[in-house]
Design a binder for these strands. Structure first.
Lengths: 226, 226
DNA sequence: CGCTTAATTGATCAGGGTCAATCGTGGTGG
DNA sequence: CCACCACGATTGACCCTGATCAATTAAGCG
């Protein structure tokens, strides 16, 4: 067994990374400990302060992981799609909470079981490491996005990121509301809306429906995302 | 051996976490592979795009890890102090660059060597995992900070975070320039300066010297940090 | 002591936040 | 089937925070 420090997958293509869990030299290590659960749209999966008994893998649907600030503001740390793992935290209790953006199917893993498995099978430890590194890359990418000044830059980046999750990379289906996007980008709902309208006026995108966006000029978007 | 998923150390107290590398059940696993290097203030440690041959541990001094955007803006992802590990990335080449904020003493580890050690000694894999989790917590904290709206909130949080690195938690010695702070918080140098001046006018802090700040009213700062 | 670079302060401007009204859309029940 | 309702999204008007531009001050350092 070799520790694979070199993982060349770009951070925005997490979905495609599911393979490492099913690959030849690394069979799905958590499956035996996992329980399939369904969560309805809008429902909470875990809350800030709860014990970190479990972590989860998304089978289908979209999950948001977020923090509620004292004054009511909400900050979304990440959206998670099929294949991604979330709720995997350092301390004994969750620092963040998680909710279903759409109806979701998840696998829930008992941390205790996985810890025990890690004792017997060190490839599990390695997988925990890889999951942590994936999350790290994602979190760093998010910081970079938030640090970016312009609202346009943020929105353009967001669309490009989500285009990679689509089958057709010119059609972006957004599972989340404008409010979710705003809270993810550190903007207001109005600014997100205005930015999208502006992009449509400029002929860069087309808002087929509220949740369905056609990317008409990906290059222009990439320029805007800087 | 047990995989320690439960690490209760708060993310802002990374410095104090050096112990896990020297503790009884986890002797310093990288030391044998490490080389001590000195880096002068302002010097580059590695650049974006370089091969990720090495990663580093800070012995003394402060390091900034950052990204340069196409238009010249700079975004600082993190500052690293004694005991912390950085330059530990997913891909084959660095996404971020690193520079010495002050004169630094570092230990450089060849990734190849550590990979080989991980084959023989699985506690190394575990340590890689723990380092990744620490970095993750730090990156998430940073996202939260950047997402927060007010300039004051950001500056207050920043000061409180750095107070934990001081021996006397009422005296904060800043190794970095205002520009560094600005690039870390996603603000301009002027806004950082004005925020500090405002805090001083309000009697919350005292600017003993440019780089030395006395926290006169920690509680007020905590309120501002929200 | 003057030179250079960082930091502070001031004046002005603009991007995005806030408040408020309107529009769409999907769901429900008559 | 359609009218109504509720909620999300869009759009507009205005304001405020923080960016920008510019000048001054302070702090190393040869």
């Amino acid at each position: 067994m070799t520790v694979q420090l070199a993982i060349r997958t770009p951070s925005h293509a997490l979905k495609a990374r599911t393979d490492w869990m099913a690959g030849q030299d690394s069979p799905e290590p958590f499956r035996v400990a996992g329980t399939v659960v369904h969560v309805d749209e809008g429902r909470e999966i875990f809350a800030e302060g709860e014990d970190t008994d479990c972590f989860y893998k998304v089978i289908s649907g979209v999950v948001r992981v977020c923090k509620f600030l004292s004054d009511g503001r909400r900050q979304i740390e990440a959206f998670h799609v099929a294949g991604e793992i979330f709720g995997f935290e350092l301390g004994g209790e969750h620092i963040l909470s998680a909710e279903a953006v759409s109806d979701c199917t998840l696998v829930s893993y008992r941390r205790r079981n996985v810890e025990m498995m890690a004792q017997k099978d060190h490839t599990v430890t390695r997988h925990l490491f890889e999951v942590a590194m994936q999350s790290l890359a994602q979190a760093q990418g998010h910081s970079l996005l938030l640090g970016r000044r312009g609202a346009m830059e943020k929105v353009a980046s967001f669309l490009l990121t989500w285009a990679t999750h689509s089958t057709d990379r010119h059609i972006v289906h957004l599972a989340m509301t404008r409010q979710d996007i705003a809270d993810y980008l550190g903007l207001t709902i109005e600014t997100v809306s205005r930015s999208l309208s502006q992009l449509e006026r400029d002929g860069v995108i087309a808002l087929s429906s509220v949740r369905e966006i056609r990317l008409k000029n990906v290059e222009a978007l990439e320029d805007l995302a800087a």
